[in-house]
Simulated assay, not measured.
Amino acid sequence: MSFRMGVMTLALVLAVMAVLLSPASSCSCFYRHPQQHVCEADFVVFARVRKVTHTPDGLTAYKVKVKRILKASEKVQLILQKGLIYTIPGTCAMELESRTSQVITGNVQGGKPWTNLCHFAKPWRSLSSKMKKGFRLLYERGCDCPIMSCAFWEDCPKASFMCAWETSNEENDCQGRHAVCLRGQDGTCDWLGGRLYRECMKPRRKQLDNEITVANNKQDNNINNKINTIPRRRRPLRFGYKRPRLHKLGQPRKGRPYIQHVVNEKPFGPK
């Protein structure tokens, strides 16, 4: 129970820090799964970026045409109707490609929609089929299942109330591109993927199986070596005492007269 509470507390802290990250904050942000971006954002839009512009109050904004609102409250939808998404200039500014349809996430502060490098913004054409389905509907359905990145864990923690993001620090992020974390009918959270996900995870699982086999063989060898070094126990005595060893030929036993058979000797007495 304490481990579960610890993991849930850590996930809650990460979520709160991501939500409270203001546009003026530095770009020290956590690497998050696309599903986490959707669950923690105030808005998710599929929009075409037209150009970057500067507002009269000195702010930098992107002029966009919102094609579809994937996530937003009614109040946020009214704000997005102006067709401007703000970002602060500097190292944390989000650089959006002009004349490109993109999925953009962000938060609303001061009555304005903001996005920065800590949010998600990628061209629609670069997303996998599972990511497209996730942004349309599936990601938001799985918001009650926390996702725990294993990038800083030696052994990835496993629990039924969350999804362990094992491929978060790998170049081929199978769970990031081809899986969604959803709660099943039994109440447990697990990754939902298709054929591409299984094919992507196959080399990784094969490598893990080989590592487990090598570790088991090494453990078996160590056990066998320990067994061989254990001295053998003597067979218990049948009569409760040590029986004397047989004497060597030609040597008398202790406590017994020595009798030697003489061959080819003359018999005693008269003929």
Rank of each mutant, 00 (worst) to 15 (best):
N225A: 06
G184H: 07
W165S: 00
Q185L: 15
N224L: 12
G176D: 05
E199N: 10
N169S: 08
A215F: 10
Q175D: 04
P203K: 04
R195L: 04
Q219D: 13
N169T: 10
V180K: 02
L196Q: 13
D209Y: 13
D173H: 08
G184A: 13
N224E: 15
I223Q: 09
E199S: 05
R183W: 01
I230V: 10
D209F: 13
R204C: 04
K226Q: 10
E170K: 15
R234D: 11
N224H: 14
R233F: 13
I223M: 07
R198M: 09
R177H: 10
P231A: 04
W191A: 01
N217M: 14
G176N: 09
R198G: 05
G193V: 02
E171N: 13
V180G: 00
K206A: 07
V214F: 14
Q185Y: 08
C174R: 09
S168V: 02
L196D: 11
E199P: 01
N224P: 10
T167C: 04
R205I: 04
W191M: 04
I212C: 09
Q175K: 05
R177V: 03
L192W: 11
M201D: 00
R183I: 09
P203L: 01
N172V: 07
A179L: 09
G184R: 00
D190V: 12
D173W: 02
H178K: 06
C200K: 04
L192D: 05
K202L: 07
N210W: 15
T229Q: 14
Q207R: 11
W191R: 03
L196R: 13
T213I: 15
N216F: 15
N228L: 06
N169L: 05
C181P: 03
L192G: 03
D190M: 15
D220F: 12
R183E: 05
D186N: 06
N217P: 00
D186M: 09
Q207G: 08
N224C: 05
T188I: 11
Q219R: 11
L196N: 09
K218M: 14
C189I: 02
K202F: 02
P231K: 08
E211Y: 09
L196H: 11
N221W: 13
N221G: 11
C189M: 04
Y197W: 05
H178M: 04
T229W: 13
P231Y: 09
C200W: 00
R234P: 14
E171I: 10
R195Y: 03
Q175W: 00
C174H: 02
G194P: 02
M201Y: 02
R235H: 12
T213D: 10
G176K: 06
R195H: 09
R204F: 05
I230N: 07
L208M: 12
R234I: 11
N169Y: 13
E199G: 02
S168C: 07
N217W: 14
R235Y: 10
Y197R: 08
N222P: 08
K202Y: 02
R232A: 08
L196M: 12
R204N: 07
S168P: 10
P236D: 04
A179H: 03
A179N: 03
